[in-house]
Design a binder for these strands. Structure first.
Ligand SMILES: [Zn+2]
Ligand SMILES: [Zn+2]
Ligand SMILES: [Zn+2]
Ligand SMILES: [Zn+2]
Lengths: 165, 165
DNA sequence: AAGTCGAACGTTATATTGTTACACTGCACG
DNA sequence: CGTGCAGTGTAACAATATAACGTTCGACTT
């Protein structure tokens, strides 16, 4: 069982063997679901695969469009949204609020307070989990008397690959 | 011209003279628009006033509903969205991405990289601008080779007022 | 084997949020 | 006066998401 976090590094790599990313994400997901006793059904698996079809965030209706014809009938909104809800509950996918879109988590299995990096040039979405950021946020919030339950941190900017063009 | 940042403190104050918040926000907006040579038209002013009708984030279609009948005709979506776009450009209002809603900025006039605090109990939305957070985010992003242009930071949790109930 | 239950999925309709396109008005400016 | 342009009105539509309810199917009980 690999389960390394190599995927974390790849979002902004211009060229890499992306089919390996997909394979790795799917096999990690299968292992996690197995371990938790939840079911990675064909619909859920297919949605996860399509979310991972690039390192960009994917729109729900684009997923539907890609699933036209390949399931028995056309995939309707509830089918896709239910699958996305499941994948998010299991931490396999994150929602990108500032884009109304969804991206595969490169480090599933451990819960985390991730910070997303969204390249406005190439659309790639990376993810980091910086303890100093989490600490600074917690400190600042508690000075304001605020008790944090969840965080949404999304940075828009230019990724390394796009800067070096 | 007051232009203090007292408003910043009030989002989570259980009881306060909120009509003063509204007055202050509107007069600050008028001053800022005057100074910049942009027009705070009646539509824009009314939208800003309604956004400030509480310290909660307000939905665009709720604004429309409240404007029914008071303008010549019913307010249609483009009217409200154009006003919101203007107010956001001028930094008088922020969009809360995680809620698809809009909140008045308590410290307009200076551009800032704000962090929003959203109480899941009472719905109030406060705002802070913590240098340590900004610094940690910048550091972490640049270690990832990422050049930040904009940030979306929204913390969901329980505000001081709701904790002490 | 038959019954029961609940998770997953299908289906239809609807709700919510936001945009496009184009016409009209009124004021600033020559 | 025209002329242009910012602001607004209006109609239609696009994009995103949820509600409500029925069906299927396998696990478990009896
Ligand atoms: Zn890849
Ligand atoms: Zn890029
Ligand atoms: Zn107030
Ligand atoms: Zn509260």
């Amino acid at each position: 069982m690999p389960m390394d976090s190599r995927l974390e590094e790849l979002a902004f790599e211009a060229a890499h063997d992306h089919s390996a990313c997909v394979r790795e994400a799917l096999s990690a997901a299968a292992a996690i679901c197995e371990e938790r006793g939840v079911r990675l059904t064909p619909v859920r698996r297919r949605v996860l695969e399509l979310v991972w079809s690039s390192h960009q965030a994917v729109k729900a209706y684009d997923l539907m469009a890609q699933m036209q014809g390949e399931m028995a009938q056309a995939a309707k909104p509830p089918t896709v949204y239910r699958a996305l809800d499941f994948l998010m509950e299991q931490g396999l996918v994150h929602r990108v609020d500032s884009l109304n879109a969804y991206v595969g988590c490169p480090t599933p299995g451990r819960t985390h307070r991730e910070q997303l990096l969204i390249c406005t040039e190439c659309g790639a979405v990376g993810e980091m989990e910086d303890p100093a950021v989490a600490h600074a946020l917690g400190e600042a919030a508690s000075r304001a008397g605020f008790s944090v339950q969840r965080q949404t941190v999304e940075l828009q900017g230019i990724c390394g690959a796009c800067q070096s063009v």
